[in-house]
């Protein structure tokens, strides 16, 4: 997993609520048996018309908006547990998602893949959308160590929460398996006294 410390980038706005993982990566693209290449089909059915032409109305096809931060409406990543959604967002080139609310499984999947889910207040999310709208070249800084997201050229910033263990993993590029493999003897001890009926 790649390390995440500080990210300074412009952002791509997607002000839609309840974006489910079927939109992020439709099921028909889940047939791959590796983790790579899902970025091409990120938001496939919004990004392309039925005739497979790029849909000019969709933000990823709009040259005004670029960057490594995806900003989305509340309850981002609901629905299917497919980790392919996090892979697709990462593979496309995003390193962080900003929203006012995440579905649980998506949040976990993102963190397990070095994609930082930054949860901000609804008011701050609105500020971000407004700044991108006014000037798409606005930069945002996400400082994981300080747990802070700020809007460049303004005084505006907000603190965000993250599980301390997950924070350490993200900063160091560790994953849970490395951690759990070191717990083998504790797990074996537990198993001896644990009864499954």
């Amino acid at each position: 997993m790649d390390k995440f410390t500080t990210l300074n980038s412009t952002a791509v706005p997607l002000p839609i609520e309840d974006i489910d993982t079927d939109q992020i990566i439709p099921a028909r693209f889940l047939k791959a048996t590796t983790r790579e290449g899902f970025g091409d089909n990120l938001f496939r059915d919004w990004r392309y018309t039925q005739g497979e032409q790029p849909n000019a109305d969709f933000v990823l096809n709009n040259p005004r908006y670029r960057g490594q931060i995806l900003v989305a409406g509340r309850n981002f990543g609901c629905g299917s547990s497919r980790e392919h959604a996090a892979w697709a967002i990462y593979d496309y080139g995003f390193r962080a998602v900003v929203s006012s609310f995440y579905a649980d499984i998506f949040r976990g999947n993102a963190l397990n893949n070095g994609l930082l889910p930054v949860q901000v207040s609804p008011a701050f999310l609105d500020q971000i959308f407004r700044h991108i709208e006014q000037d798409p070249s606005t930069h945002f800084t996400i400082d994981l160590q300080a747990q802070q997201i700020s809007i460049a050229g303004t005084e505006l910033s907000e603190h965000f929460d993250i599980d301390p263990y997950k924070k350490t993993c993200m900063i160091n590029g560790y994953d849970d398996i490395d951690y759990l493999l070191n717990k083998r003897s504790q797990i074996e001890t537990f198993e001896k006294q644990h009864q499954i009926y």
Partner: peptide, 22 residues
């Protein structure tokens, strides 16, 4: 409960998951 593929790997590897309690 449902899990992502990285967690499938965790459980295959250790029969455990790192979790925060809901």
């Amino acid at each position: 409960f449902g899990i992502g593929t990285s967690q499938v790997e965790q459980v295959l590897a250790t029969q455990c998951l790192l979790q925060s309690k809901p």
